[in-house]
Simulated assay, not measured.
Amino acid sequence: MNHKKNSSAKKISTLTGMLMWCLMTLVHSMPRDKTPSDFPEANARIGQSFIFREADESIAKYGYMDISKNKKRTYGDKLSYEEYKGKKGKVIGIIAIPLTRFSETYLWHLELEGGEIVYARWSPVLSDQINDLVFQSDLDEAQKVIGEKIWLNWTQPGIKKGLISSSKDVIRHVSHLEEVQVVGIDTMRYGHGTGAAPFWLRVKFGDGQEALLGYSQRNFYAQNPIKSAWDKKTIESIKQKKVFIGMTAEQLILSWGKPEKVNRTITKNVTHEQWIYGNQYVYVENDKVTAIQESAGQVRRRY
């Protein structure tokens, strides 16, 4: 009898172990949410100094909604605008807060002048920025382009973008690689659909109109990226964000931006690449565009 009990217990133990192994395998094979460790630029912020941004009256009344003294209540325990505007501090680190057994959220750990500790939500969308704060290092970099010409980088195929001024009623439609001059910096937070940006470059167009450009080095080129040796067809295609067979990889990036993913196959004499842009695919061989697969599935090739 004892032999049968021991045998049954051993089988149950073995079965339980197998089930646990299957469960852990399933958990580890599930798509993993991105964490701060996936973003070196986020960790590079540790030790950097910041300033609480000022805001126009339409949103100042809501306070600093993404920053809290309580790391367990960052979604509702906001800081007072009048008390904290203009205050300075530095980033101590990024900490993980458990949500469930298998998930967690992440917070910026911040120390203000005087030693006060506060916490801000971390987001993978703007992994190296903190909503409502501006980093001093970014302001220092932006100062270098004041008075200089820059070329606007709108590399989202099929999307028309415009810039808005602080007057709330002026929208300036812009062209890809349009030349403007940087005339100043604006760190104010505006509540009228200006989009997410740590602060603004105030830029002037050729007709004298000014507008706000969200500060990110992805949004502009400090030097004219168009080479004088390129033919007119190539230059116009790039400015219109079009791609054609025969373009170089450099020209493709100028037209559509960097791809979301590149699949690469290397043979003896040729490197074959598939550049993925959403549901559109561009095929590159030895630095030249050789085929374009459009959203409907049609492939244009050079034979």
Rank of each mutant, 00 (worst) to 15 (best):
E113M: 11
I164S: 01
I146L: 10
W151S: 02
M18R: 09
T35L: 12
A211Y: 14
R189A: 06
I130A: 12
L79W: 14
I97Q: 03
P98R: 01
K232N: 06
K69L: 10
S165M: 07
V299L: 14
V262T: 12
S8R: 09
G297H: 09
G63A: 03
Q209R: 11
K69Y: 02
D186L: 06
F39S: 09
Q240M: 10
Y221R: 04
Y221K: 03
K258A: 10
L212H: 15
Y281R: 10
E285N: 15
K61E: 10
Y215T: 08
T271S: 04
Y84K: 04
R264N: 03
D128I: 09
D231R: 01
S58V: 08
K4G: 09
H173I: 09
L177G: 12
D77R: 09
K61N: 13
L133G: 08
S165G: 15
T187R: 14
N219Q: 05
S68N: 03
L107G: 12
E57Y: 02
K11G: 03
W200R: 13
E104V: 02
S13F: 11
K227I: 11
S123E: 02
E148P: 12
L212V: 06
A120F: 05
N279Y: 13
K242A: 08
K161S: 15
D140M: 12
C22G: 12
L133K: 07
G184S: 14
M1V: 00
L126G: 01
G147A: 00
V284G: 06
L126I: 07
Q181L: 00
S103C: 02
S228W: 02
K241V: 00
C22T: 13
F205T: 07
V125T: 07
D186T: 01
T265W: 10
S216D: 07
G193P: 00
G89L: 09
T14W: 03
D169Y: 15
Q143M: 14
H176F: 05
R202E: 15
S255G: 01
R300N: 05
Y303W: 08
S127K: 05
Q223K: 15
I94D: 05
T267N: 05
E111D: 05
R264D: 03
V145R: 02
S137R: 07
F135V: 00
A229L: 01
S13V: 08
I51N: 01
L152Y: 14
N219G: 04
N43S: 06
P36Q: 04
Y277G: 00
H192Q: 11
S68L: 06
N70Q: 02
K90P: 03
L152H: 04
C22N: 12
I238L: 06
V91T: 08
A55Y: 05
I92W: 02
M1G: 03
R301P: 00
Q48E: 11
R172M: 15
Y221M: 08
R300W: 13
W21C: 12
F102R: 05
I292K: 11
D132V: 00
K261S: 04
F244H: 15
T194G: 12
I46Y: 11
I130L: 15
I12F: 10
